[in-house]
Design a protein around this nucleic acid. Sequence first.
DNA 1: TCCATTTATCGTAATATCACAATAAAACAA
DNA 2: TTGTTTTATTGTGATATTACGATAAATGGA
Lengths: 109, 109
Amino acid sequence: MGLAKTEIFTDAQNEVAYYAKAFGHPARVAILQYLFKINACVCGDIVNEIGLAQPTISQHLKELKHLGLIKGNVEGTSVCYCIDLEKWATMKNSMERFLNMDLARKDCC
Amino acid sequence: MGLAKTEIFTDAQNEVAYYAKAFGHPARVAILQYLFKINACVCGDIVNEIGLAQPTISQHLKELKHLGLIKGNVEGTSVCYCIDLEKWATMKNSMERFLNMDLARKDCC
DNA sequence: TCCATTTATCGTAATATCACAATAAAACAA
DNA sequence: TTGTTTTATTGTGATATTACGATAAATGGA
């Protein structure tokens, strides 16, 4: 079906999956890293930085924007993207709660 | 194309994407949480715990096993799955390095 | 106004993912 | 051996993802 049965999972589980899915493509990982590196907000030279076509980058940016992890400010003919640090913190919280499951666990099998 | 251009990204970027992709489905998140919760290793009552058909669970388990995050021990007719804590730590390291990009960053835009 | 620049959107081809019914395979019990 | 239980595999339909050429839309400058 290509369609996950989100109804049967908890909000927390769906949230982890939701964010993780966004990081499930190296281009989006690279875009986020680049936006963090270039402290000042940067626009479409992301296309030059990453080796993908402009429509492809635009598509990835749209997904990240939809998640709320980045914001885009229109500046003349170009758009300046940057990380939404508040949202990043929220996401990080959710992901870390998941990743830290191992603390408090003993060995197995 | 439905095919990511992994060649143009760094190993670290691809690794984050690789793990994140696995967490990109709530069923796999739920399976891992369940395996952590049931400290003793657990077999196919994962199917009962999660509300998905047996072949579907088997498929998700296969992916997690392929990643190395879980191990399966055959015990008679059933298979006992458990978290591979060592691999989990490796994965966590990779993910946290990515998630902690924000430390050391100022505000933007 | 007309053109150049930049980004977004559309359309589409190739591939991947998700879910499950049907069935096979493996192991044990009677 | 025959049946039972448990898990894996196969096959398939529905949908999602990735990538990009072509084009539209927006803005500023000549």
